[in-house]
Simulated assay, not measured.
Amino acid sequence: MARINVLADDLSFDEPLLVEGLPGVGLVGKIAADHLVETFEMTHYANVHCESIPKVAVYRDDDRGVHTPVRIYGDAERDLLVLQSDVPISPGAATEFADCLSDWFDDVRLTPIYISGLPREKDEEPPELYGIGTGDAASMLDDAGIDAPAEMGLVSGPTGALLSYAVENEMDAVGLVVESDPQFPDPEAARVVVTEGINALSDIDVPTDDLVDRAEEIRDAKQRLAQRLQNAQNDESSQAQPLRMYQ
């Protein structure tokens, strides 16, 4: 049975932003979400229970507690929510996952920020960030000065399903598409998402020095999940990809 089990009833929000951190190309969404949760020491606000989520339990070092693999963290002072996931969602389950979350999203009256990696081989140039949106959220991207995509493309996986749900139901949603390493966790792309995306869209100033200083450590810590995504028989990751005409 699909449900969002709120744990911290004492937290209240006023039309918050929600940053989605599902594993995808370069793990940019997950790295950015984990960084927000750790930096602001956010409160474990809710557990997400959907049929599409693998039935596994998560435990942490120096903690005997057991947790659900997909959770929501909250910071009432910053009017911020973060969707944190320790597991990928399979493509076949993406629609159910979107249905499971979106009704609650609508009840809370939040604006989601969905993050997708656009596979690009690494070079000396910093990753480019593009913004897409549904409903009135497109104007948020204009106000934030975030560029429109340089080419036609699509977003797949659970993030694509969530954006599709927003289009179908005329909900406001922002999509951030960032060039990302297609093979390895990409803290630099996550830094660009935070500095040029999340900071620009909100009144929040998220420091990112730690993402740069600990880039190698972060890559190593996330490598096992990245390998699981690469080895999956079906592509379980959210990603953006170009749709070039006349191929």
Rank of each mutant, 00 (worst) to 15 (best):
F184R: 13
D210N: 06
P91D: 08
E51V: 00
E15W: 04
F105T: 03
Y59F: 15
G157I: 09
K55E: 14
T195K: 09
R60W: 14
V28Y: 03
E125S: 00
G145W: 01
S156D: 09
L229T: 05
A2R: 02
N234P: 01
D203W: 02
D186P: 03
V82Q: 10
Q230N: 11
Q223F: 12
I53F: 05
D143Y: 03
Q233V: 14
A166C: 14
L141E: 03
D210Q: 11
V28T: 09
F184Q: 13
D142N: 12
D210K: 10
R3Y: 07
E124V: 00
A94Y: 03
V194M: 13
T95M: 08
L229V: 12
V25I: 15
N47A: 04
A150D: 10
G117P: 04
D63R: 01
T39M: 11
D181H: 13
V193F: 06
A93S: 14
F13A: 05
R3A: 07
L36G: 03
L83N: 06
S102H: 07
A189R: 03
Q233N: 14
R120G: 00
E38R: 11
V167P: 07
D123N: 02
L83V: 14
D14W: 06
Q247A: 13
T111R: 13
L176P: 07
A33F: 08
S164G: 15
I146S: 04
Y165K: 11
I31E: 02
D209N: 13
E15G: 10
A46W: 01
G65Y: 07
C50S: 12
S85D: 08
V66T: 12
S85K: 05
E217L: 04
I218Q: 02
N47S: 08
G160R: 02
P158W: 03
L176F: 12
S202Y: 02
E20W: 03
L229W: 04
